[in-house]
Write a protein that binds this DNA or RNA. Structure first.
Lengths: 238, 238
DNA sequence: GCCTGAACCTGACAAAAGTCATCTTTTTGC
DNA sequence: GCAAAAAGATGACTTTTGTCAGGTTCAGGC
């Protein structure tokens, strides 16, 4: 499990345009670039652990990472799945707290690490960048509010349908009339996203499959009928 | 339901020390002060509505306000209860989105309104203030992550116990060996905080009461045995 | 290619929690 | 101070979902 380093200049990174670093001045970007360390991780490796102190910011270049909390019985709840272009671990860094969640690689990943001093330096010098960060954080918070309300009042079936649609939006590869969720998620991980038991996810998925809403393609899920799925996600079919 | 205006100088506000405005330079504070409008609201009045555009920031001077989302069936989920010193509606303002929640007065309130131009002006000119705001927002986000995991995997009994403890921490008036939650919450509101049905809350509260964990004092709840309540909040009593 | 463990699936069952109906108590408006 | 409405309480019942136990299939390491 040796860490393999690699290097790509931030200015040439294909995900720069999707990133919060987009719009940074060349000097600021090179300040980030000159201090970053880029590492390749294998599936299953951990990026950071709940309870430890952040020392910088992670920036995804490739792969997928799940960020999750473990409860007393060892059940996971997945808060977020990070994809290329996303920041990782910024919440604890900016609130100056310990990590409250653990990050584990779902699909082999390339991740750059920016020491906090350098990140904060750019942040402090650059009010427009700071403002973009605030905006992004507050947007994220709105998503979490939605999730809270969903978790509080929707059934597992509705939540699963809603999460499949969400995954389709974020990781979907569009085909003709259908869309493949480009994420190798186990049933267990899906259960940890929805907030339910693995068995329940399995049963509901096979329901959705026999109703022609989804299909399985290897380890991945294809959404065949997003409209019907949306009806399952809403409350009480009118 | 006429709005009654009042006025208190920010610099003299008794909640300044608990507020994010604490630490602002006299000039910045007077910039806020000179543009604010302060209004008294009665219980039941709305401060802002889901789906509308924020035009500024609310800052609580007195009373309590619930911020909640309504689902399709009209069930409320309470995201937050604001108390004096708290900001209200900053999330949508900073993410430049519409309000995603409604704010309604729980206990007669005095709330100051700061137009967004003036708030943003101070924010932009003052990196230290901006940093404090970011820190607070990210801290808040951590609380929401906890709530998500709680909602996903804890039973209603555990969640009710945990929320009573949380309310005690935030609104508790300490007595000898017990603590009164200084919040006139209906059973329905408590259900909307916990994410369950009103009947379930009523039943569980009376359980807790007969076990000597809590007592009722008018519309308020007194926590008699925080330790036992904490054991109810955790999973599986060891 | 085979073995081993992990992931996936299915059924039976129990527990938790929601719903509905009804009744009592408290609050509020006039 | 009274009537109406809202809040609180309780019981009966149903549905949802979790748990456990037992299978099968799949994938990776040797």
């Amino acid at each position: 499990m040796a860490k393999v380093e690699f290097n790509i200049a931030c200015s040439l990174c294909e995900h720069l345009k999707d990133s919060l670093f987009n719009g940074l001045s060349p000097e600021d970007l090179s300040r980030i670039n000159n201090h970053k360390t880029c590492v390749q991780y294998k599936k299953g490796q951990n990026i950071f652990y709940e309870g430890t102190r952040p020392t910088g910011l992670y920036c995804m270049n490739a792969g997928k990472v799940k960020v999750y909390k473990n409860n007393v019985q060892g059940k996971e709840f997945i808060i977020y799945i990070a994809k290329p272009g996303d920041f990782l671990g910024y919440r604890a860094l900016l609130s100056e707290e310990f990590y409250q969640a653990t990050a584990t690689v779902l699909e082999d990943a390339k991740i750059c690490f920016i020491p906090k001093e350098n990140f904060f330096e750019v942040l402090q010098k650059n009010p427009a960048f700071m403002k973009r960060v605030v905006k992004a954080v507050c947007h994220e918070m709105g998503i979490m509010e939605d999730k809270l309300a969903e978790l509080a009042h929707k059934s597992v079936r509705e939540r699963l349908a809603a999460n499949l649609l969400m995954l389709k939006e974020t990781y979907g590869m569009e085909g003709e009339g259908s869309s493949l969720i480009d994420l190798a998620l186990s049933r267990e991980d899906l259960a940890s996203i929805v907030g339910t038991a693995t068995e329940t996810v399995i049963r509901l998925l096979s329901d959705f499959k026999s109703d022609g809403l989804i299909a399985f393609e290897g380890k991945k899920i294809r959404v065949l009928d997003a409209k019907k799925l949306a009806r399952q996600a809403d409350l009480i079919v009118a």
